[in-house]
């Protein structure tokens, strides 16, 4: 499993596709976590299930946790859930890349 992250529109998906031709790419994974949260699922358990069922996937997500804590409880829960889920994915990944202005910085 590999993980590509970055702020909005930083080129993480393009990098993931360029560096992993033919791989299963799970793009916008932060939105997948949002959907899981809406279904009432625990974000860590959800992420562990993804690791178990799709161990060769390349996960692509936006970093969403680096702003002022939102007043809206749902938005707060969303940001935290993305963090918890991506910690699980990052631990399970053999490689983690952070995109900044289209440049991939390997952090694991």
């Amino acid at each position: 499993m590999k993980l590509y992250i970055g702020g909005a529109y930083q080129g993480q998906e393009e990098l993931a596709r360029a560096e992993n031709p033919g791989a299963v790419i799970l793009a916008d994974f932060h939105e997948t976590v949002r959907a899981a949260l809406r279904r009432g699922e625990d974000p860590r358990a959800f992420a562990r299930e993804v690791c178990r069922t799709q161990p060769d996937a390349v996960i692509v997500a936006n970093e969403v946790g680096a702003g002022v804590v939102p007043i809206d409880a749902g938005e707060r829960a969303f940001r935290e859930a993305v963090g918890r889920a991506l910690c699980v994915i990052a631990q399970a990944s053999e490689q983690v890349t952070r995109a900044v202005c289209g440049i991939g910085v390997r952090i694991k």
């Binding site: 969403v64 946790g65 804590v69 935290e80 993305v82 963090g83 918890r84 910690c87």
Partner: peptide, 11 residues
């Protein structure tokens, strides 16, 4: 430092 839910406390 780090964002929300990033695992700062655990580390």
């Amino acid at each position: 430092t780090g964002g929300s839910g990033c695992g700062k406390s655990t580390y």
